[in-house]
Design a protein around this nucleic acid. Sequence first.
DNA 1: ATACTAACTGAACGATCGGTTAGTAATGTC
DNA 2: GACATTACTAACCGATCGTTCAGTTAGTAT
Lengths: 209, 209
Amino acid sequence: MSENGSLRRGRPGYDQQGILEVAVAAFNQFGYDATSMGVLADRLGLSKSAIYHHFASKDEILERALDEALSGLEGVLDEADAARGRAADRLDHVLRGAVHVLVDKLPYVTLLLRVRGNTEVERSALERRRAFDRRVMALVTEARDEGSLRSDIDPRIVERLLFGMINSIVEWYRPGGKEDADRLADDVIAVALDGLRMPTSNRIEELLG
Amino acid sequence: MSENGSLRRGRPGYDQQGILEVAVAAFNQFGYDATSMGVLADRLGLSKSAIYHHFASKDEILERALDEALSGLEGVLDEADAARGRAADRLDHVLRGAVHVLVDKLPYVTLLLRVRGNTEVERSALERRRAFDRRVMALVTEARDEGSLRSDIDPRIVERLLFGMINSIVEWYRPGGKEDADRLADDVIAVALDGLRMPTSNRIEELLG
DNA sequence: ATACTAACTGAACGATCGGTTAGTAATGTC
DNA sequence: GACATTACTAACCGATCGTTCAGTTAGTAT
């Protein structure tokens, strides 16, 4: 439960991170609202009140979890914004990076994608998500203007379809399969950029014509 | 509240459909579990107990709503299975049909896509969804085998990415905008089949080589 | 030993949950 | 008017919700 080698002081047991992992797994299985502190305590093998030693409220557990996901996604965008080069290349980096964050922090991102905005914590997370989307939209627009992306579809719709596809990964991807994160990112980028259609001579003529 | 012109007998008021529409809207706003029968009654302008005149339980309201979405989606697949012709054309019909069902029954499909499987009703709906996905996967496999779709990506992943993209429409599409269902379906199919990349001479050479 | 720190328990709180019961109100039909 | 039909209300139920509190346990540090 502790990541550093030196022994922790005080009575051994869960720390915040340990509680968080179990809680997020439960939230994802039942939904946040449908997960009671009682069943959460059962899963931890603790009493309900023990949880309140580590977190001030159920809401605060959610807040920590959502920040874990959001900071990961925002980090990918920060890297892209710091880099120079074609917008298409920076967008490529963001898409692949987003897939990796999804896979590495799967439970946290899964939870984030199901937030409805019932509380202040949830609304704040939704706003950070919207800000993320806006930054990606700007990148898509840039890539279109430099001639890298097709210009016949609204960049906002392009961005939403792109992340609709990427985010849906949390619905079915499970780690440990033959499909690792790199291969998955390759597939997603291949479908997104080049489409599903099998190239044919007809298509080549169409492109030439 | 009534769709037929002739007057209903008995005291006027809500019928099942009227209750259902308001309930589904509330479920989508707050989430099913976070929507209490109390706030639902407030939205309807009724007492809690009045709702139980129309539905036996909260669960039954959900059941009706999920069936509305599922029967719509299954209908599209039934049409495609009844038709003859290339698998690619039947798949095209399914994808466009799914977009239209999503738009026409937006609140119901939105609700369906958020079901977690906590109750028997939810688990049954999830199983119908999985059966739908399996039928679409078979169609994707057929289209690949006839040479219409690229063969370098697992058909199961293709299907999931496709419907990840399509299903994500419920997260942002709102009726009444400039983007109607037909245009939206065109955009989705365009991105899915031909990708986002701007065709270049390099790409043509690559296809020819 | 003593002090300190962190982890935890059991019992209880007020609030809210989904649901029940018994009775009432408003319409069309005859 | 009587009657059937449909829609609804007020009051209440036991269960469960998130949370609090006073006290206990198990370890490290000096």
